[in-house]
Simulated scan of single mutants.
Amino acid sequence: MKKRLLTVLLVASMCLCLTACGGSSDDKKDDKKTEEADDKKDDKKDDKKDEKKDEEPDDGIINFDGKDYNVTYSRHEVGTDYEGNPCLFYYYNYTNNEDKASSVMTAATIKAFQNGVECDSAYVTEENEAITNYMKEIQPGTTLEICQTFKLSDTSEVTIEASDFISLDDKKDTQIIALQ
């Protein structure tokens, strides 16, 4: 019985040794893969730096080329919502560059931030064709003026962000609007 127990212990210790030795070559392969991945990341960072050098400097006005569309700032004004609270009317031109009809509602996202917090949409009672244009589909090559309204918490500046509605990158354009 003692011999069997000793044999089992020896076999178990040999298995552990083989497992430990076998893992070291895999670790070297993993280290090489990690180094290669790090090198690729560094190359991508360098590429992004080169791309930024090629881009025009940001002019502080929304002129965003999204996937198959363009959004360009037109104007803005301060008004009131249906309760009499202050709100921002943000006007922009949406150009459909796709080969089929589309609407800004399904292509782009326009957000407003005040004091670092996203502004809610404001609801207004006045007639405004640019507001109703938000849901309209337009044919390829057509440009339409759109208006979105945002609730204001005070008179501090508002940051507008334009980006793709669905995107795999963080590409966006920003604009700061002074309300006073």
Rank of each mutant, 00 (worst) to 15 (best):
D42E: 12
G23E: 10
L16A: 09
E126L: 13
G84Q: 06
G116P: 07
Y123K: 10
A37S: 14
I61H: 01
N128S: 13
E118P: 12
D170S: 08
K53I: 15
L16S: 14
N97G: 11
E98P: 00
R4C: 00
I166H: 05
K171A: 12
K41R: 06
L9W: 03
L144K: 12
L10G: 01
F113N: 14
Q139L: 08
Y73L: 02
R75M: 15
Q175Y: 00
K41I: 12
R75Y: 06
Y82W: 08
Y90G: 02
K49T: 11
N97Q: 07
K151G: 13
D39R: 15
Y92N: 12
D120C: 10
S163I: 01
D173W: 13
S156Q: 02
C87T: 03
C21N: 04
E83R: 04
R4Q: 01
Y91E: 06
G84M: 08
E161M: 09
T159R: 11
T19K: 10
V78N: 03
K100P: 05
K172M: 08
A112M: 14
I177E: 01
E77M: 10
K29W: 00
G22R: 08
T109D: 15
N93D: 13
L9A: 05
F64D: 06
D164A: 07
Y134L: 15
S163T: 13
S13R: 03
T19H: 11
A107C: 15
Y134I: 11
N96A: 14
L18Q: 08
S25Q: 04
S103A: 03
T143N: 01
K40E: 11
K45E: 13
C17H: 06
I138L: 13
L6F: 05
S103Q: 14
T149Y: 07
Y69V: 08
I146R: 09
C87S: 09
N70F: 02
T159M: 14
K32Q: 02
Y69N: 06
E145M: 09
D173L: 02
F150C: 13
S102P: 00
L168F: 15
L88G: 06
K41L: 09
E161L: 04
K49P: 01
Y73I: 00
N115V: 10
K171R: 04
V11W: 13
Q148P: 10
D164H: 05
L152Y: 02
Y90F: 08
T159L: 10
